[in-house]
Design a protein around this nucleic acid. Structure first.
Lengths: 337, 337
DNA sequence: AATGGGGTTGTAAACGATTACAATTCCATT
DNA sequence: AATGGAATTGTAATCGTTTACAACCCCATT
């Protein structure tokens, strides 16, 4: 069942059928009526392969994620989805697992016209390559940025967020503050490390490399990281996790070791924990997790909007925006016990 | 830059270029060489819109999810992604939020040839409509099934899983067992309820409707559900959550109310909690969550394989399979304190 | 009655690839 | 030298739409 069939069925031309399908104004009410009943009777739906080729649009956008498991991304994704549902766009998801081959494969979907644009959550691109991509295709970078690349990006101020978190711990009297960071893969990470160091420095605390542990952005990573930190000769009295998923594991490890206890009465001091992201789960842990809030809904919504602007604008006027949204330190129990 | 450009550049015909692109055997080594260098020099990549129309394939498959936030789905998705990465297929994700309009919109992507097949995680379809879809397009139903529909589906035995969990609680001496279920939307839910009832009945415990609370599949849902159950005149001594995300909230609520305490010494009996799914987080809670394990990796992998079989098989031989994978009761701390 | 113009419809050329089928070349065989 | 057949290449149709342009009809105006 194709447009031609409807044409012969109604005795009209394919052009007219097409006009009805696309709500073109110049169709007489009678023919429109006739065509619509024919469509309804036959259950005809247009083939997008033909349409897409003709108009050179796919109405699909690609979301490139480093990993599928992190709830932080899921929550942003949810916001993007919501926006997409209100538009005529469908989202496609590509997970790279930090495999450069896959990263390229997904970017190539732009050149091969499989998608109209992309939102990437990666940052370790070559800045020249990235600028090149961004100049040719609708593309926005979310939660990350690549130093020196000309591309629209949107994120929080990770340096300041980390600074705020660590400064808070210092104000609470901590001087031995551990950190559990990711695999050095993201710009957001370097920034958080910079903020961590700045806070220490400002308080006159010297930075100790052994306090900065490298792990996955997973509870398991945080769990192992915390165990390692606490095994040091002089273990930290507070641990800053670079993601809530990490801090979940930190809390688990500390609880297990008796370094965290709710309603403690034995006089021992609990190890303080602070995270980053503020995923939904954070309020549901015991103890609830203090963390740096990222406006995930806005990050997702705005990314989508920025991408749509680029898509609709066409190739002229290719200016790039670099947008910072506000983070917020959220104090719950884990830093207060 | 299109195939024609490469053709004129090399002085060959488009057919030959196409043959080189698709590794057809009948191309002389010299021309192949010549074409390949031309392609490399110009950076030509084929336009998939043209190709897709011609071969009537998109190399995309759609995953239809009820919600984006549940880590249970994320973990299955991860498995599907892994499979897809090894194939030439890309996955597209549609989240319905239980909006029937969206459900239809996504299913229509099959008829409009936007995707080659779909994996759906929904169950409340009209069985005739679903049979109709499944007979016309590659389609598999994952984690759910629709009674009476002819469609390939794969899931665990939810009835037996719930039965095992509740029976275990009964063996541990509990007789007042609460349940927190979802919004009556999934077949898996009805099945779990059936298993819950069967276990009670077999032990001679009468089913009390007020013990069966309805909530969202979220920590917040579980949190509120647990508070409601504990507010009953005769509160339950154990709570079975229909998903780990629910049970996370249950644990939170109970901890807050002092109904769960790790290393309790006051002689009070803790309320037991058990979940369903076994998401990665479950081992990272305090207390760790006892639950019914679902083989998420296999569910994802097998779904993808089953879909590929259908896609590759074409329209002939449309037989449906109904596959049950094994669940497993995983006992951790939350049921043992 | 001729003219002009708005509204409606049709004709046919795209879009960029793949692929039957036909045509050509090249060699070995007779 | 003529023939046949395999290997290679080219021609042109095709996939299902959209859309510029042409064509037509109908009616009001002159």
């Amino acid at each position: 069942m194709k447009i031609k069939d409807i044409a012969s069925l109604t005795g009209l031309s394919v052009a007219t059928i097409s006009r009805v399908m696309n709500n073109h104004p110049n169709v007489s009410p009678e023919t429109r009526e006739k065509v619509e009943t024919a469509i309804a009777e036959t259950g005809y739906v247009p083939n997008f392969l033909g349409r897409n080729l003709r108009v050179s649009k796919t109405h699909k956008i690609l979301i490139i994620l480093p990993t599928a498991g992190n709830p932080f991304y899921s929550e942003i994704l949810e916001a993007i989805q919501e926006q997409a549902n209100h538009s005529e766009y469908t989202i496609l998801i590509g997970v790279t697992n930090e495999d450069p081959t896959l990263e390229n494969k997904y970017m190539e979907m732009l050149t091969t016209k499989q998608v109209d644009g992309a939102i990437t959550f990666l940052s370790k691109y070559d800045k020249y390559a990235l600028t090149q991509w961004a100049s040719q295709y609708p593309l926005v970078q979310c939660c990350e940025y690549t130093e020196g690349a000309k591309i629209t990006n949107i994120s929080v101020d990770n340096e300041q967020g980390a600074y705020d978190a660590v400064s808070y711990l210092i104000r609470k009297g901590h001087t031995r503050i551990g950190a559990i960071r990711g695999q050095l893969y993201f710009a957001s990470e370097s920034d958080r490390t910079a903020g961590y160091k700045r806070a220490l420095e400002q308080a006159g605390i010297k930075y100790r490399p052994e306090y900065c542990h490298i792990a996955d952005y997973t509870p398991e990573g945080g769990y192992r990281g915390a165990k390692a930190l606490m095994a040091l000769e002089e273990p930290p009295t507070a641990i800053f996790g670079y993601g809530d998923t990490i801090s979940i594991g930190v809390i688990k490890a500390l609880s297990e070791m008796g370094k965290i206890k709710i309603g403690r009465t034995d006089g021992v001091r609990n190890v303080a924990v602070i995270g980053f992201d503020d995923i939904q789960l954070s309020g549901m842990l015991s103890p609830t997790l203090s963390t740096v809030y990222q406006p995930k809904y806005e990050l997702g919504k705005k990314s989508f909007r920025l991408l749509m602007d680029q898509i609709n604008k066409g190739s002229e006027n290719k200016e790039c925006y670099s947008i910072k949204l506000m983070h917020k330190l959220v104090i719950r129990e884990s830093s207060e016990l």
